[in-house]
C-alpha cells in the first residue's frame, strides 16, 4: 500500500508528460510536412533552367551571346514574377484580414517572396560576371522586354477578335441583303415575311 502511494504520482506525471510530448511531436511533424507539401506559388522556372543548363554545358562551350540572351530571358521571367507578387501583396493582406483566404496561401506567398529575392540576387551576380556593372541595368532591360511582350500579346488578341467580328458582320450584311432583296428562303425569315 505504501509503495503504491509513492508510485502513483510518479506514474501520473510520467503519463501526463508522455502524452503531451507525443502530441507535440506528432503535431509539429504534421505541420512541417503540411508546410512542405504546399504547392509553390509559381510553376517551374523554365527560363532559369535553360540558362543553368546552358551554363553548365561541358561537352561544348556555349557562346557568350547565347548565354547572355538566356540570362535576359531569365531576368524577364523574374520581372514578370516580381510584378505579380507586388500586385498581389496588398490585396492578399487585405483578404487575409477579412478571412476571405486561408493562412496557407499567405505562407506560400512569403515563401515565393523569399525565393524571388534570392533569384534576383543570383541574376545580378551572373550579370556582373559577364560584364561589370551590367547587374545594375539588366532588370531595366528585362522590364522593357516584359512590357513589349505584354503589348504584343494584347495586339495579337485584338487581331484575332477583329477577324471573328469581321466574319460575323459580313455574314450579317449578307443576310440583311438577302432579306432586303426578298430572296430569303430560310425558314425563320420566311415566317416573318408572311406575317407581315
Amino acid at each position: 500500500m505504501n509503495k503504491l502511494s509513492l508510485l502513483a504520482p510518479l506514474v501520473y506525471i510520467a503519463v501526463l508528460v508522455g502524452t503531451l510530448a507525443v502530441f507535440s511531436n506528432l503535431y509539429r511533424k504534421r505541420k512541417a510536412s503540411k508546410a512542405a507539401s504546399l504547392k509553390p506559388w509559381f510553376g517551374p522556372h523554365y527560363a532559369r533552367d535553360v540558362y543553368l543548363t546552358l551554363l553548365h554545358q561541358e561537352t561544348s562551350k556555349v557562346p557568350d551571346t547565347i548565354l547572355k540572351a538566356a540570362l535576359l530571358r531569365r531576368a524577364t521571367e523574374d520581372i514578370r514574377r516580381i510584378i505579380a507578387l507586388r500586385q498581389a501583396k496588398g490585396s492578399l493582406q487585405q483578404l487575409l484580414q477579412r478571412g476571405s483566404i486561408g493562412d496557407d496561401l499567405w505562407t506560400r506567398f512569403t515563401v515565393a517572396e523569399a525565393e524571388i529575392e534570392e533569384e534576383l540576387r543570383d541574376v545580378v551576380l551572373e550579370a556582373n560576371a559577364f560584364k561589370e556593372g551590367w547587374g545594375n541595368t539588366i532588370f531595366q532591360t528585362a522590364n522593357e522586354m516584359a512590357n513589349a511582350q505584354r503589348i504584343r500579346d494584347r495586339t495579337d488578341e485584338v487581331v484575332e477578335q477583329a477577324a471573328a467580328e469581321r466574319a460575323w458582320w459580313d455574314e450579317k450584311r449578307k443576310r440583311s441583303e438577302r432579306e432586303l432583296l426578298g430572296e430569303s428562303n430560310s425558314d425563320e425569315d420566311g415566317v416573318l415575311v408572311e406575317k407581315r
Binding site: 506559388w41 498581389a88 492578399l92 483578404l95 477579412r98 478571412g99 476571405s100 483566404i101 486561408g102 496557407d104 496561401l105 506560400r108
Partner: peptide, 16 residues
Amino acid sequence: HTRDGVLMESAGSLFR
C-alpha cells in the same frame, strides 16, 4: 471555409 463560404483551398486557387 472562408468568409465567403467556400473552401480555403478554392479561395487560394482563385486568388492564384
